[in-house]
Computed example of a mutant assay.
Amino acid sequence: MKKVFLTLALSMGAFLTMNAQEISENAIGLRLGGGDGFGAEVSYQRAIGNDNNRLELDLGWRNDDNFDAVKLAGLYQWVWNIEGGFNWYAGAGAGLGTVDDKRDFRDDFDDNDGAFVFIAGNIGIEYNFDIPLLLSLDFRPEFGFSDYDVIDDFAPDIAVGVRYQF
């Protein structure tokens, strides 16, 4: 019993005295990637509280042969230090957007233009350099809801982020 208590006390002491790396108060940059998602997003991160939590807002757009789209996503993220400048994070959020389907239809009334909403998860890894640069790689599964076939489904989104911290 004494060994269990001693191990538990040492573990709690080590956990409570760890020096976790603090995240930057603000970061702004680009999130580039896609999958079925969007080609580029302007990304802003804002630290919340003292617990390495943050809010991420992304404004994305896509222009290709099939459709044009714009979306706004908001995610709450929890950030944990791995070692040194490496962090990993997980989060959840939602967003909204609009899509303009450019495909030709036989019937003009069978359009897929309009607004949509989505929910999203987020998991990733990042490196915080000694200079004000933050690089990240993340996976964001999104589930869209609309009356339009273009957005009404699951969309895996893998992206690389490059952000300036201030």
Score class of each variant (00 low, 15 high):
residue 123 I to T: 14
residue 67 F to G: 00
residue 82 I to S: 06
residue 96 L to I: 11
residue 84 G to W: 02
residue 91 G to P: 03
residue 127 Y to P: 13
residue 106 R to I: 07
residue 94 A to S: 10
residue 106 R to S: 14
residue 124 G to T: 14
residue 78 W to C: 10
residue 79 V to T: 10
residue 104 D to Q: 11
residue 87 N to H: 15
residue 102 K to Y: 01
residue 127 Y to W: 11
residue 95 G to S: 04
residue 103 R to A: 07
residue 74 G to L: 05
residue 126 E to A: 12
residue 105 F to V: 06
residue 100 D to F: 01
residue 79 V to F: 06
residue 111 D to W: 01
residue 123 I to A: 15
residue 106 R to W: 11
residue 99 V to P: 03
residue 82 I to R: 03
residue 68 D to I: 09
residue 88 W to I: 06
residue 75 L to D: 02
residue 110 D to G: 10
residue 67 F to N: 14
residue 93 G to V: 06
residue 120 A to D: 00
residue 125 I to F: 15
residue 93 G to A: 00
residue 102 K to F: 02
residue 92 A to S: 10
residue 108 D to L: 05
residue 109 F to M: 07
residue 122 N to L: 10
residue 86 F to G: 09
residue 100 D to Y: 04
residue 96 L to D: 00
residue 121 G to D: 11
residue 120 A to Y: 00
residue 99 V to S: 04
residue 64 D to Q: 05
residue 105 F to C: 03
residue 93 G to K: 01
residue 127 Y to S: 08
residue 62 R to I: 13
residue 102 K to W: 01
residue 114 G to R: 04
residue 107 D to N: 09
residue 98 T to A: 12
residue 101 D to W: 04
residue 113 D to Y: 00
residue 107 D to F: 02
residue 70 V to C: 01
residue 75 L to N: 13
residue 69 A to Y: 01
residue 80 W to C: 13
residue 81 N to W: 08
residue 84 G to M: 03
residue 78 W to N: 15
residue 101 D to Y: 04
residue 80 W to Q: 15
residue 83 E to P: 00
residue 90 A to L: 09
residue 88 W to D: 12
residue 121 G to M: 08
residue 62 R to D: 13
residue 122 N to W: 04
residue 104 D to T: 06
residue 87 N to Q: 15
residue 104 D to N: 07
residue 83 E to V: 14
residue 115 A to Q: 10
residue 118 F to L: 06
residue 129 F to M: 13
residue 115 A to E: 10
residue 72 L to D: 04
residue 66 N to A: 07
residue 67 F to V: 07
residue 109 F to S: 12
residue 111 D to T: 07
residue 128 N to M: 15
residue 63 N to K: 08
residue 92 A to W: 00
residue 120 A to P: 05
residue 100 D to M: 02
residue 121 G to Q: 13
residue 117 V to R: 04
residue 72 L to R: 08
residue 85 G to P: 10
residue 64 D to T: 05
residue 128 N to H: 15
residue 108 D to C: 00
residue 89 Y to Q: 03
residue 91 G to W: 00
residue 63 N to H: 08
residue 84 G to A: 06
residue 103 R to N: 03
residue 71 K to Q: 12
residue 106 R to K: 09
residue 64 D to L: 01
residue 91 G to Q: 02
residue 106 R to H: 12
residue 84 G to D: 14
residue 71 K to A: 08
residue 119 I to D: 12
residue 77 Q to N: 13
residue 119 I to G: 15
residue 70 V to K: 00
residue 94 A to M: 02
residue 106 R to P: 12
residue 97 G to P: 07
residue 76 Y to A: 12
residue 96 L to Q: 01
residue 67 F to C: 07
residue 89 Y to P: 10
residue 123 I to N: 07
residue 117 V to F: 11
residue 89 Y to N: 09
residue 125 I to W: 09
residue 129 F to Q: 08
residue 104 D to G: 06
residue 94 A to G: 11
residue 68 D to C: 05
residue 96 L to C: 01
residue 129 F to H: 07
residue 99 V to I: 09
residue 117 V to E: 10
residue 63 N to C: 02
residue 124 G to M: 14
residue 92 A to F: 06
